[in-house]
């Protein structure tokens, strides 16, 4: 695992790592860097699907709730309007769709990131604490087909890393 001090350096190093053929790579940064995930070849995640699923469920549930309360369970004639008054249903449908889409986003993110994760080998590196403050890390995993310990070490040092450490799995 290699430490870098600026976002520009880490993005450049991540691109070089990807270009060198490493695929099982992880990058750590104190704040989101859009290019960083693209640089290590990370393109798609599936959170958008859980958001869509949550949104559609919310919309259906919002409609069902209103249909049940104002058409089936407690029909009231309001100013001669039909019981199934779609225009006035829309705001509630919208709200419940947003609510469940947000749940879908948060839960999907947490589950697919396998969080909460109280232990991870990278925590053994003392300077990794700085990953939430002012340092940027690139980690090449040993399961990468191109990985050999000395090669990866030399490669990361060659990219101008400030510090290269071995992480015990």
């Amino acid at each position: 695992m290699a430490r870098f001090d600026t976002p520009t350096e880490v993005v450049r190093a991540a691109r070089a790592t990807h270009d060198a053929g490493y695929r099982k790579v992880n990058a750590y940064s104190p704040f989101p860097i859009e290019e960083l995930s693209e640089a290590i070849g990370f393109h798609k995640d599936h959170v958008s699907k859980t958001v869509l699923l949550g949104g559609l469920t919310g919309a259906a549930a919002g409609f069902a709730l209103q249909y049940f309360t104002s058409v089936i369970d407690y029909p009231i004639n309001v100013g001669g309007r039909p019981l199934l008054s779609l225009p006035s249903f829309v705001p509630i449908i919208f709200e419940t769709a947003i609510l469940l889409a947000a749940f879908g986003a948060a839960l999907g993110m947490i589950i697919m990131n396998r969080l909460p994760q109280p232990y991870h080998p990278v925590f053994n590196v003392p300077s990794f604490k700085r990953a939430s403050r002012d340092a940027f890390f690139i980690c090449i995993k040993s399961e990468d087909p191109m990985f050999d310990q000395a090669g990866a070490r030399n490669f990361l040092t060659g990219l101008g890393a400030k510090e290269v450490t071995d992480v015990e799995a």
Binding site: G79, R81, P87, S88, V90, P91
Partner: peptide
Amino acid sequence: LLIIWSGN
């Protein structure tokens, strides 16, 4: 639409 339709 919603405002005018509700006000009627």
